[in-house]
Design a protein around this nucleic acid. Structure first.
Lengths: 151, 151
DNA sequence: CAGGCTATTGCAACCTGTTGCAGTAGCAAG
DNA sequence: CTTGCTACTGCAACAGGTTGCAATAGCCTG
């Protein structure tokens, strides 16, 4: 389907980036990378694991999670935590962004630039704190649910 | 040590609040409440469980977590998630607040009013979204670590 | 004080991740 | 192609939480 050589965008040269760092390119890592390349946006750890198992039923959890750690060091994915604290991975770090989660209806949205800037700016100006936006999940109640519940 | 009747501040009338709602006051719940009354600030779920076990070695995890759910419905505690996604409970909801966590040095701070307002305000104005601040943990790098690492 | 309704408990199994360790297998060098 | 270093893998056990279910026990009523 998608041989390593023809992986899209940021994934094209992964194999070599691994090797240059003294890391090894294994079938298991290839599976994880292929799954990620076929994913856009977000995935939970569990979902990712399950997709890897679709390709290779032998896939072991610890291997997947450890591979994700390595990919994060290389800057190819970033992890955050959903509203329930579960891990969530962001693919294509191009647009770093956080999430907004409605505790009532369960919908999620990406945090848009103006609000993102408000957050990052507030902490930067006041504390010199550099916010890692991709790690942020803001929980609350969306306009629709607030209206329905008669906030 | 601390008979139910003499529990401090918001805990004094818990027993009756339970009963009015058709909920039951059990020894297990009493243990959890007593532990919470002796706690200020934050606790992780695991820490809470362990303190309950100090009082009653028979304490079962699911009972503690379910009791916490009930107490949250009553507004006596609120839960959020630490930087690693683990549960964290805030006691005395008086001052609802989120947390700032430095991924480098592991320190945490409470989010202060100006930044809190910036966050809440940004989402409220733009989206009509009501942020649950107590559920927010903002991860990033504090000024000291950013300086040390040479930004 | 006894009886009955049903909210809770305790248990056991499961879910998402993490960790230590011994054996396996990439990969670079010869 | 063989060798050897050591980065990975797979496993098994653990940690923090959650869930379904049968049995227990609060609490209201008479």
């Amino acid at each position: 389907m998608s041989p390593v050589e023809s992986l899209p965008e940021p994934w094209a040269g992964v194999r070599d980036r691994f090797r240059h760092r003294g890391l090894r390119w294994t079938p298991q890592r290839r599976t994880v990378v292929e799954v990620l390349a076929a994913t856009d946006g977000h995935v939970t750890g569990a979902e990712l694991l399950s997709r890897c198992r679709d390709r290779d039923p032998q896939t072991i959890p610890s291997t997947v999670y450890r591979t994700l750690d390595v990919l994060e060091e290389l800057g190819l994915v970033r992890h955050g935590h959903g509203a329930d604290g579960r891990e969530e991975f962001h693919v294509s770090p191009g647009a770093e962004h956080g999430h907004l989660y409605c505790a009532d209806c369960g919908q999620t949205w990406e945090i848009r630039a103006p609000q993102a800037d408000a957050i990052v700016g507030a902490f930067w100006k006041a504390d010199g704190f550099e916010v890692d936006l991709s790690h942020v999940t803001v929980v609350g109640r969306c306009a629709d649910c607030a209206g329905a519940a008669g906030g």
